[in-house]
Design a protein around this nucleic acid. Structure first.
Lengths: 337, 337
DNA sequence: CTCAAAAATGGTACCGGTATCATTTTAATG
DNA sequence: CATTAAAATGATACCGGTACCATTTTTGAG
């Protein structure tokens, strides 16, 4: 039942109805152990009777703890990040933390403005993707005195902690694998290399593997495109028209690889007979498409769980034993390469 | 430059440095018009000098406005909702609102707990997906006295406003279209029908179209599965093994349709020769897959923009002229059906 | 230059929780 | 039953903004 006036009940109202002091009512609602069960019951009943909804803004102001963990992702549409986000969310829920998510679009400026907002909202911790940030962002994060976690790539000198995989090693492995399958003219389709340390490292790994096998690095075999299916298809078209001896393509993302693969299908190129295609991420579609896609498996959920674990440990004030967590990758061999 | 002690500067600190009162400093930071340019400059300089970061929790408490718009989506992984979310976010950003997103997993209980949290954080408005809510949720929303928008489906009696499409009409149209192409044994793959008015309405539309053409409704042609590619493939397998005269399948989502289509490819069934496949949503992959997917186009971004528009109008206190916004759909005819 | 109106600025209190420390009540022990 | 430690409860103040209304300063007309 609500009162006639539509102003929301406060903890003081609840306390009055329960016949206790506001602070006792507050403790009762927090499940503090310092309240007698009978008292708690009175308070809970009063709260229910008044349709009491606590005001977290007031709580945040008083305790300087928002119970918000901010997460910055590059974009909304890539399901890769969605899986990691989901597992962070799941792992934090039980501890009473909620996610505040922002999307940077790979723009350091947008990221900086997100960080500012998150600090304004007094987020208890901030999780970022990658380690490319503006100087201002770095300064803000350093002086924030809250746990900071960078994820998805590794970094010897993380701002706080970092949880990810070696994108360099993974790309190196895949390129090496393609070489092992006899391919000598291997194209690379990267996504938005600028301000993206993940694709940048993957490109570096690709180059390093080529060099290790004394293959020339042909810049005309390298395409930098946005992260959509269509872009993968377009990049494949361009690579095919420029290089008639191309025999393999390694895409820095399954989205791009799938686009490329579909383009091959459309042209009735046999994969991997005429051309091999390899991706990165192990998207759900990768094993369903025909031919199924050889790719790099990334422990997306494990990354999220570890991120949440690191954040929680830091928030509990536990001493850090480790700052860099390499979650490992796997080369998933399927039909396409 | 930061001070020696690492406590954060407050508006009072800024005011002191600028040589004005706290309230004037506050006004200067809000870009209020009631401050002389010279004064504002002094305040802005002081704020910069102190690395001032406003505390939005305090602001929220004082003004009872959080500048947060809460959005509840069924899940994180469906890119359909990501597009709508993106456009809501884009449309609200300029007005200074930030999104607080939660995922209900199609569970009314989880949704209720999300609504409770959002109200606790004093969200300025709440956007929900669909109109299936628990009684408690309905009560909470009604008494919240903030703008409420339900999206993606239409509802004659929305809690506040609703912005979406007629899922019934769309499914009816597609089924009718399949009938027009000569198909008489049309299967239906729905996703998580329970607590999901969207798929439920689509099923109703499918049934109504069959009945309009005097076709029998065969429950063995209807599958209810989760929303992943694999589930679409599995449903297709089941339908094919049970009904050898099946000549078309309509899936309530492109994800499911793509899974079904890939299963057909795998079995070397000709689509649409042996069996026609139609989807719903017009996902990005739909026009790239081979054969390209006939589907229902939904104005995902337009829905988001309208939602944002309705929310902003309500927050500005503008009188509502309309409560139900039908954004329309389109039948996208491609190769698969 | 005067004076009224408008604009800018400031003092004080309040938003709704909770930390701190004091006080009261309860439980435990001999 | 007295005594004391432990547990529960409460009074007050504070977190950091801004609303409200009073006061001062500026502006512009006469």
């Amino acid at each position: 039942m609500r009162h006639r006036n539509n102003k929301r009940a406060t903890i003081r109202d609840v306390a009055k109805v329960a016949g206790v002091s506001p602070i006792t009512a507050s403790r009762a609602m927090q499940n503090s152990t310092k309240v007698r069960p009978a008292t708690r019951q009175k308070v809970v009943d009063a709260a229910r009777q008044l349709d009491y909804i606590p005001n977290l803004a007031a709580g945040t102001l008083a305790t300087n703890a928002s119970h918000l963990v901010a997460v910055i992702l590059p974009n909304m549409s890539n399901s890769i990040f969605a899986d990691t986000l989901q597992s962070i969310s799941d792992s934090l829920r039980d501890s009473g933390y909620q996610l505040l998510v922002g999307y940077s679009d790979n723009s350091p400026e947008l990221e900086e403005s997100l960080v500012r907002t998150f600090l304004s909202r007094r987020a208890d911790a901030i999780v970022l993707t990658g380690h490319v940030h503006s100087d201002q962002t770095n300064a803000l994060l350093k002086s924030a005195a809250i746990p900071i976690v960078e994820m998805w790539s590794l970094n010897d000198e993380p701002l706080g902690a970092c949880v990810g995989i070696s994108n360099f090693d993974a790309a190196y492995s895949m390129t090496d694998y393609l070489f092992g399958k006899g391919h000598r003219k291997i194209g690379f389709i990267g996504g938005l290399l600028e301000n993206n340390d993940r694709t940048q490292s993957r490109l570096d790994g690709y180059r390093a593997a080529l060099m290790a096998h004394n293959l020339p690095i042909d810049e005309s075999l390298i395409r930098d495109v946005p992260f959509e299916f269509e872009d993968g298809a377009r990049a494949m078209r361009e690579l095919l028209s420029n290089n008639n001896s191309l025999d393999a393509v390694f895409a820095a993302s399954d989205i791009l690889a799938l686009g490329a693969l579909l383009e091959c299908n459309r042209r009735r190129l046999r994969v991997p007979g005429d051309i091999a295609v390899a991706g990165f991420d192990d998207e759900r579609l990768a094993k369903l498409i025909k031919p199924s896609l050889t790719t790099i498996g990334v422990p997306r959920r494990a990354i999220g769980e570890k991120v949440a674990g690191v954040v929680l440990a830091a928030l509990r004030g536990e001493a850090e034993t480790q700052r860099v967590f390499d979650m490992g990758f796997s080369l998933v061999e399927r039909e396409s390469a």
